[in-house]
């Protein structure tokens, strides 16, 4: 039995971090072992990277310059991973649908511009909090919130496009899109709270964030499975007999229409 004072936010956060590291590494290993890392390369790399980063931070002395330097050095790398993950979700979602590939690219590109613009406006809320005790860290968190919000909006645009056409996703692609949406949505909202309320909330919010990350990675671990090769989400659009009949009727109708309006 742990001592009574064990259950504080710091220890709970460590516990969740430990579970996250274990599940992430297990999932990355499974993706590598069954060859799915070829299709989900960025996800595999991100899971391994984030787990190894947490392990590395565990051994670094907290509240030191070295800790801060490593943390700041890894921030751009993390952001790169975030955008790469969103790109992987987009690629996997539209891979079976060449007919709408370019349209999808246009929508996602336009969505990115709109997401950046919308996010820029929402940053006014963060910046309204005024100066904080650690201005550099605050700036990094504001930027990270911007990145997370942008990717959340981008994934929302992608989801809207998929629903409009309507694209039938493979199960793993659906899990990836939903998991990433929840991941970035949670991150954006928790960072918003942190930016508004100051560094005193970090302990609680980071624990909640770890819990959310653990739930998402566990969901992926439990649900992501090897896929059957071949075109995934596609179904025949038109049953043959119905199609032939429909074609005949449409032909007759078009003949009538091209003859001109009847009175």
């Amino acid at each position: 039995m742990p001592p009574e004072d064990f259950w504080n936010w710091a220890n709970l956060s460590r516990l969740l971090e430990g579970c996250y590291v274990a599940v992430s590494l297990a999932l990355a290993a499974r993706l590598l072992r069954n060859g799915m890392s070829r299709r989900y390369g960025v996800l595999t790399a991100f899971l391994a990277f984030s787990a190894l980063t947490l392990i590395g931070f565990y051994f670094l002395p907290r509240r030191t310059n070295l800790y801060a330097q490593v943390y700041f050095a890894l921030v751009p790398l993390n952001w790169g991973f975030y955008f790469a993950l969103a790109y992987e979700a987009y690629r996997r979602a539209l891979e079976d649908h060449p007919g709408i590939a370019t349209a999808g690219r246009w929508v996602v590109s336009g969505g990115l511009v709109l997401a950046v613009l919308a996010t820029s406006v929402t940053l006014l809320v963060d910046l309204s909090a005024g100066t904080q005790r650690f201005p550099v860290l605050f700036a990094v968190h504001v930027a990270e919130r911007a990145v997370a919000t942008t990717i959340t909006l981008l994934l929302a645009v992608l989801t809207g496009f998929l629903l409009y056409f309507p694209v039938l996703l493979r199960r793993n692609s659906l899990l990836l899109v939903t998991g990433l949406t929840l991941y970035f949505l949670g991150k954006a909202l928790l960072l918003l709270l942190r930016n508004l309320l100051g560094p005193a909330t970090v302990e609680v919010l980071s624990t909640v964030n770890q819990g959310l990350n653990l739930v998402i990675v566990s969901l992926w671990f439990l649900r992501i499975a090897p896929e059957i090769p071949g075109p995934g989400g596609r179904r025949p659009t038109v049953p043959n007999e119905q199609a032939e009949e429909m074609l005949r009727r449409l032909g007759r109708l078009n003949e009538v229409l091209t003859r001109g309006p009847g009175r």
């Binding site: 649908h97 060449p98 007919g99 709408i100 370019t102 246009w106 309507p166 694209v167 659009t237």
Partner: peptide
Amino acid sequence: TLVRDLEHDRP
């Protein structure tokens, strides 16, 4: 649905 299932890109 038919555009979605096209084999060729028709943006």
